[in-house]
Amino acid sequence: MGLRRVLEPAGVLPQAAWRLDASPEIAADEVRIAVQRLNLDAASFRQLAEKHGGDGAKVRAEVAEIIETRGKMHNPVTGSGGMLIGVVEAVGSESPLGLKSGDRVATLVSLTLTPLKITDGLAKWDGRSEQIPTEGTAILFGRSVVGVLPDDLEPELALAVYDVCGAPALTDRVVREYDGSVTVAVLGGAGKSGSLSLAAARLAGARTVAVVRDENEAATVRGLADAIAIADARDPVAVAEAVGTPVTITVVCVDVPGCEHGAILATEAGGTVIFFSMATSFPAAALGAEGLAADVTMIIGNGYLPGHAEFAVDLVRRVPAVRQLFESRVAGH
Rank of each mutant, 00 (worst) to 15 (best):
A199Y: 01
D235I: 06
V239Y: 08
A200V: 13
D235E: 13
G205N: 15
E241M: 01
A204L: 08
A227Y: 08
T297I: 14
A219D: 07
G271P: 04
V296F: 03
A210M: 11
L203E: 07
C259D: 02
A240T: 05
A279E: 11
E241W: 06
D226N: 00
D295N: 15
T220W: 07
T250I: 04
A266H: 07
L292G: 01
A218Q: 15
T250Q: 12
V211K: 07
D226P: 04
G288V: 10
A293M: 10
V186R: 08
V296Q: 15
K192W: 07
V237N: 08
N216D: 06
V247R: 00
R207E: 10
A206M: 04
P257K: 12
G205H: 11
V211R: 08
C259N: 04
C259W: 05
A286N: 02
S197T: 06
V254M: 12
P283W: 09
V256Y: 12
L198F: 01
D214V: 04
E268I: 05
G270M: 11
V296E: 10
G223C: 01
A293R: 04
A190E: 14
I264L: 15
C259P: 06
G258V: 12
G271Q: 01
T220C: 02
L196Q: 13
V296L: 03
F276C: 04
V273N: 06
T250S: 15
T250W: 07
S193I: 01
A284W: 07
G189Y: 06
I230F: 13
F275S: 10
A284R: 14
A240C: 04
N216I: 04
A210F: 06
V221P: 00
A263Q: 13
A218V: 02
I228D: 02
G271N: 03
G258Q: 05
E290H: 04
D295W: 00
T208W: 12
G191P: 04
A284E: 14
S193D: 05
L187Y: 03
S197Q: 09
R202H: 15
A233K: 09
L287W: 08
D226A: 11
I228G: 01
L187W: 00
V252G: 06
V273F: 04
T272V: 14
S277Y: 15
A219T: 11
A210P: 03
N216F: 06
V212Y: 11
T267S: 06
V239P: 12
V211G: 07
A238H: 01
E217F: 00
E290D: 07
T248C: 14
A201D: 08
R207F: 12
L287D: 09
G244S: 08
T267C: 13
G258K: 09
A286V: 09
G223T: 03
L187M: 14
R234S: 13
R234F: 11
R234D: 00
L224Q: 07
P236N: 13
A294I: 06
E241C: 05
V256M: 10
G270I: 00
F282Y: 06
A204R: 03
L292D: 10
G194D: 01
D255T: 13
I228F: 01
T220S: 15
G188D: 03
G271K: 02
A294E: 02
D295A: 15
V252Y: 07
P236S: 13
P246A: 03
G189C: 08
V243Y: 03
L292N: 05
L196T: 10
L187C: 03
E241N: 12
G291L: 08
E241L: 08
K192Y: 01
I230H: 06
R207I: 07
G258P: 07
N216Q: 13
